[in-house]
């Protein structure tokens, strides 16, 4: 392609600024004809008196001054997410119908995790219906960015994000959740937030 041809392939090149800000050694291949100058819209007679802006700003602030407030008085009041099933809060590890951990230690969540906060040690499964199970399953909640990709990646719907949002602790160690704790969160939240899928014996 010829360099001075202002074709589609050159659209990513910026034109040189009039003040030389983007000045480059090579001529920028944008023809003058293709440049479009965007002018600021002209103010009308009303706009030039500044009065509509003046009144508009004042009425907006006064409306909000007297309007309904959105503050939630935590901790006396609790914020409840509009749809807890899609809220991305603290993780839980689901149990199957027999009360066993559903996870099959496939490492898909740990692989998908952009923050590398999931650490799984797999072991041979004691149960006949799967080959592996997680011997340990740790999530560092301080590293987690609550993106929900582990949940997306899980092929057996074992890991899910709950609507618990006020996560706090007194030490870093305390914030690394192990398998027992994650299963405990399932026991705590299973009534309010049923499992999203009933597949795989859920």
């Amino acid at each position: 392609m010829k360099r001075d041809d202002p074709g589609k392939g050159d659209r990513h090149l910026l034109p040189t600024g009039p003040d030389g800000c983007f000045a480059q050694k090579v001529p920028v291949p944008v023809s003058r004809a293709k440049l479009r100058w965007i002018e600021e819209p002209k103010l009308g007679p009303a706009g030039r008196t500044y009065l509509p802006l003046f009144l508009g700003g004042l009425t907006t602030t006064l409306r909000h001054l007297l309007g309904r407030k959105v503050t939630v008085q935590s901790p006396e009041e609790r914020y409840s997410p509009p749809d807890p099933l899609i809220y991305r809060g603290v993780h839980r590890l689901n149990r199957d119908a027999e009360g066993r951990v559903k996870c099959v230690a496939c490492f898909l969540c740990a692989t998908a995790c952009p923050a590398h906060c999931i650490d799984i040690v797999a072991a041979e499964s004691p149960w006949p219906d799967r080959e592996k199970y997680p011997q340990t399953f740790n999530i560092d909640e301080l590293r987690c960015i609550f993106c929900g990709m582990c949940e997306e990646a899980c092929p057996v719907d074992a890991i899910e994000l709950t609507s618990l949002y006020d996560l706090s602790g007194k030490s870093r160690e305390e914030m690394i959740f192990d398998k027992a704790k994650l299963l405990g969160i399932y026991d705590m939240t299973k009534d309010a937030e049923p499992m999203r899928s009933s597949r795989n014996g859920g």
Binding site: P18, V28, W37, K42, R48
Partner: peptide
């Protein structure tokens, strides 16, 4: 004053003075 003041607030260089590209 409203009539006399410029009716835009744009302070970029004018198109005419932008020079050759």
């Amino acid at each position: 004053l409203a009539w006399a003041l410029p009716n835009t607030t744009d302070n970029r260089p004018r198109r005419e003075s932008a020079g050759e590209l």
